[in-house]
Write a protein that binds this DNA or RNA. Structure first.
Lengths: 201, 201
DNA sequence: GTCTATATCTGGATAGAC
DNA sequence: GTCTATCCAGATATAGAC
């Protein structure tokens, strides 16, 4: 256990593995590439983590133990359904602007190996849905299918990052243009949410 | 060129390759698997198509020369922006119910190889956007950012199919439940579109 | 055109010296 | 703990018989 002021080999490996796996997914990643990026050799990867599978699983779990608890806590700062959903959109798009590879990573992994879904906490969603019904009774919100609605909001937040290559080509956007569009999108999506939830009359 | 009443080997290969590549993507697919499914052996694959790359490219191109021209033509049956967008949502969700692997296939391919974006026709989008501006002048539509809006509509149509594994786990849905939800979603999304586009006052 | 057999290459994993 | 060298499995691709 070398624990000096130097960055430990283990954390160098983790940082490299995260970067490579996030960008390329499990199948598309090479242990050699991770080793190179960490500035060590392949054998050491197997010394610290038994196998490619084990390393991948570690990265996947770490990534979600970071985000979800924080999200869940932040959402408590909002009270009404509309406020919660708006805050969710703001936080999620903000997160993805900083971590644009995350959606691909999750989607690809779950497509190949649906069991990994267990590792992702989803109670937040149920909590938000619950507030819909209380708001509905108080007539603070329009009557609609809240499952379909939440699916729509999540879609509007995440999908643009997945379709970025196609989208940028279709309307000729640079990477910087795209980021600005996503930044502006936060307010745009919040506007949609408000219009859609507005009680009629 | 054996051209009898029997299905040609070439088309058997194409059908098998389409199924395997769509489900598993390029990296996740094995030539052996395609050969097995086609009921032939690996060597024949290379006889008909030079390499895995060449076969994949053929499948990718074929897939999109099917759909987009048809979509483009269908959209001409609608006149106003709102109608066009509603029809688009209906057709796109309907297509994906029958081809649920398509979104993954496209997204994964473009992530790995952005150049493939060239092979996907996107003029349809520009055409639809154009009608927004004419409708705006006639005050038939609310003022908003049409690029963000179209991005939202596409998101609502496609993303549920990408997040299916996570979503079904989160709210405990079976495959059949999910398909029914998507069928109902067509009308739900059309309602959202109308509400969002409705001119104010 | 279709097969079997094999060459070749790549990448994950291990052995063993230091 | 870290390295070099090597093994081995799996996958693409080719050679050559029928």
């Amino acid at each position: 256990m070398e624990n000096n002021e130097k960055i430990s080999t283990e954390s160098k490996i983790l940082a490299a593995a995260e970067q490579v796996f996030l960008r390329s997914g499990y199948d598309g990643s090479r242990m050699q590439e991770i080793a190179d990026l960490a500035g060590i050799n392949k054998a050491l990867l197997h010394y610290y983590f038994r196998s490619k599978d084990a390393l991948f699983e570690k990265i996947f779990e770490d990534k979600f133990s970071q985000f979800f608890p924080r999200l869940q806590e932040e959402l408590n700062h909002a009270t009404s359904f509309a406020e919660k959903v708006c805050l969710y959109a703001e936080l999620h798009i903000g997160l993805l602007i900083k971590n644009p590879y995350l959606p691909h990573f999750v989607i690809n992994t779950l497509q190949k190996n649906p069991d990994f879904a267990q590792k992702i906490p989803t109670e937040v969603l149920m909590q938000v849905l619950q507030t819909y019904y209380t708001d509905l009774e108080a007539q603070k919100v329009r009557e609609l299918n809240p499952v379909q609605f939440m699916m729509s909001v999540m879609s509007m937040c995440v999908f643009p990052f997945l379709s970025k290559p196609l989208f940028c080509k279709a309307i000729n956007l640079s990477d910087k243009d795209f980021e600005l569009l996503m930044q502006a999108r936060i307010e745009e999506v919040k506007r949609y949410i408000k219009v859609l939830l507005e009680p009629i009359g």
